[in-house]
Design a protein around this nucleic acid. Structure first.
Lengths: 174, 174
DNA sequence: AATAACCTACCTATCGATAGGTAATTTATA
DNA sequence: TATAAATTACCTATCGATAGGTAGGTTATT
C-alpha cells in the first residue's frame, strides 16, 4: 500500500468516527510514519484530501453493490444486497457511513468535499431507483429515497445507542 | 435573553450546521458580545456546554411534541405531528436535527455529551412507541425505530442535496 | 459586604500551510 | 551511452491563526 493510499485509509477511519474535523494532517502523518508537511505533497489542501476520500469511497461503494439487474438475474433482491452492505459497515467496520456523516455536516464542508458527498447520494438514489424498478415497485424513486433514508438513519441511531439491534429492527419488513 | 441563553442559542446554530467541533468559545463569545474567558463562567468546559445544549434541546423537542394520547383525543395522528416537527426544523430553521448530527459523530464526543444524545433518542423512541401503540400498530417498537430513522435520514439527505422535496418524498405514505 | 458576571492577560497545544532543501529515481537530450 | 534536467517523495523549520483553559483583577447588583 502506497503512502497516499495509507493516508486515505487512515483518514477514512477518522472521518467515519467523528467527521471532517476529526482528522488532522499531523495525526495521519504520524500514523503512517511520515511528517505532516509531506502529506501536502500528496494532497495540496485538507479539502483535496477530503474530496478524494469521498470520491474513492463512493466508487468503492458502488463497485461493491454490483448492478441491480445482475442480482435480479441471480434470484436475489437488490434491496437486500444494498441493506447488507450497510449492515456490514455497521457490524464489521463498526463505523458510520462516510457520506452519512459528511452529509450531516454538509453545510460546513469545503465546496469540493460537499460536491463529492452529493455525488454519493445521487449515485445511490440512481442505483436504488433501478433496483426498485426491477422489483416492480410502482414508485421506484419514492422507494429509493425511503430506503437510503431509513438505512442512514438506522445506522446513526444504532451507533448512538450502541446497539445494533436497532438497525435490525429498522430494516426488518413490517 | 440572558447571556447564558444567548450562548446556548448561538452554539445550537453552529452545531446544527457543522457538528460539535463547529463552535468555539471565542466565536460564541464574540457573537454575543463578551470575552471567551467569560464563557467559562457559565460553562466550565466545552463538554459542559455541549451536554447542556443537548439536554435543553431534548426537553424543548419533547415539550413541543406534546403527548400522543392528547393528539389522538383531538383526532390527530401523532406520527403526523412528529413528522411535522422534523419538517419545520428543515424548512424554517434550515438546519439538521441537533442530535441527528451529534449522533452521527457520537464516537468522538465527550462522554457527557454522548449521554445526552442517547437520552434524546431514547425519549423519542418512547414517545413514538406510545404513538404507534395509540394508532393500533401491531409492532409499535418496530414502527418507532423506523419512523425516527426515516426522518433523520431524510433530513440529512435533503440537506446534503439541498432539496427539500426529498424529505417530502421520503415522508409521503406509499 | 458578598456574590455574580464579567474583564485582561496569559498559557500550552494544535491547526493547516509554506519555504526551502535533499536524496533517489526517471526522463530527455547531445 | 553519458550527462543534464526534471520529477518523486520525502525532510526540517517555521508561520500565523486558533483551540480550550486558567489566574487573578474589576465592575455591577443585592
Amino acid at each position: 500500500m502506497s503512502k497516499k493510499e495509507a493516508l486515505l485509509k487512515a483518514a477514512e477511519n477518522k472521518v467515519r468516527l467523528g467527521g471532517y474535523s476529526n482528522f488532522s494532517f499531523r495525526e495521519l502523518a504520524s500514523e503512517i510514519g511520515i511528517k505532516s508537511a509531506s502529506v501536502h505533497y500528496h494532497f495540496p489542501t485538507k479539502a483535496d484530501l477530503g474530496a478524494e476520500l469521498a470520491h474513492q469511497y463512493t466508487n468503492a461503494f458502488l463497485n461493491a453493490l454490483g448492478s441491480p439487474s445482475e442480482h435480479k438475474a441471480n434470484g436475489k433482491n437488490p434491496i437486500e444486497v444494498y441493506t447488507q452492505l450497510f449492515r456490514s459497515a455497521l457490524l464489521f467496520d463498526k463505523k458510520m457511513c462516510l457520506c452519512g456523516l459528511l452529509g450531516a455536516e454538509s453545510d460546513s464542508l469545503p465546496e469540493k468535499v460537499r460536491f463529492e458527498v452529493k455525488r454519493f447520494f445521487n449515485q445511490n438514489l440512481e442505483w436504488l431507483t433501478e433496483a426498485h424498478l426491477a422489483n416492480g415497485e410502482q414508485q421506484p424513486k419514492h422507494a429509493a429515497i425511503q430506503t437510503v433514508s431509513l438505512l442512514e438513519g438506522a445506522m446513526m441511531i444504532s451507533k448512538t445507542l450502541d446497539d445494533n439491534s436497532y438497525f435490525e429492527l429498522a430494516t426488518q419488513p413490517a
